[in-house]
Computed example of a mutant assay.
Amino acid sequence: MTDPASPLCLGLDPGLGTLGYGLVRQKGDRLLAEEYGVVRTPPGEPLPDRLRMLYEELRRRTGAWHPSVVAVERLYFGKNVTTAEMVWQARGVVLLFATQLGVPLFEPKPSEVKLAVCGNGGAEKRQVQGMVQCLLGLSELPRPDDAADALAVAVAGLALASLERKEVLFP
């Protein structure tokens, strides 16, 4: 059951080989990392099997949590069409999973995630990771990078949800 006074966001960083997930709870003016990690799929397996693995493993790992909001990073690719196609398919599975939870879904762009976490939409990856560590009170940088990215997406999701409710995330 969700608690409006303590919203929980599931942040997802889509990927076929490695999908990052992070659950961040807002308690007053504090943000807490409840859980984070990655789901990996073996590169030698057929694509449909890997997509099924992503879905099932994501359900298994986050099934005990009841997020009040989900945030899935919007993707941008330059020229690598093959990689983009596979990641877009993984993103489709993630969006299916997210909508089945029946809670608000936000899709922040990478620049919006950086802005929410660092106050700068052009921040470097290392800056974002350092701010995630600081904002969530973690003793070390979250690893691997995909999990750190998912935590940043969750922070952005909470910020977007509070804006939608016209509340201030950090009073």
Results as ranks from 00 to 15, higher is better:
Thr41Gly: 05
Pro42Ala: 11
Pro42Val: 00
Pro46Asp: 14
Leu47Trp: 02
Arg50Gly: 10
Met53Trp: 07
Tyr55Met: 08
Leu58Val: 05
Leu58Thr: 06
Leu58Glu: 06
Arg59Met: 09
Arg60Asn: 05
Arg61Val: 15
Thr62Pro: 12
Trp65Val: 01
Ala71Val: 07
Ala71Gln: 03
Val72Thr: 05
Lys79Val: 11
Lys79Ala: 13
Val81Cys: 07
Thr82Trp: 02
Thr82Glu: 13
Ala84Asn: 06
Glu85Trp: 09
Met86Pro: 00
Val87Met: 08
Val87Tyr: 10
Trp88Tyr: 13
Gly92Arg: 03
Val93Ala: 11
Phe97Cys: 07
Gln100Trp: 03
Gln100Ile: 00
Leu101Gly: 02
Leu105Ser: 06
Leu105Glu: 04
Glu107Met: 10
Pro108His: 02
Ser111Pro: 00
Glu112Pro: 01
Glu112Phe: 01
Lys114Arg: 15
Asn120Val: 08
Gly121Cys: 07
Ala123Cys: 13
Gln127Glu: 15
Gly130Lys: 09
Met131Asn: 11
Glu140Gly: 09
Pro142Tyr: 09
Asp146Trp: 08
Asp149Ala: 11
Ala152Asn: 08
Gly157Tyr: 02
Leu158Glu: 02
Leu160Lys: 10
Leu160Pro: 06
Arg165Cys: 01
Arg165Ser: 09
Val168Ser: 11
Val168Leu: 12
Leu169Ala: 11
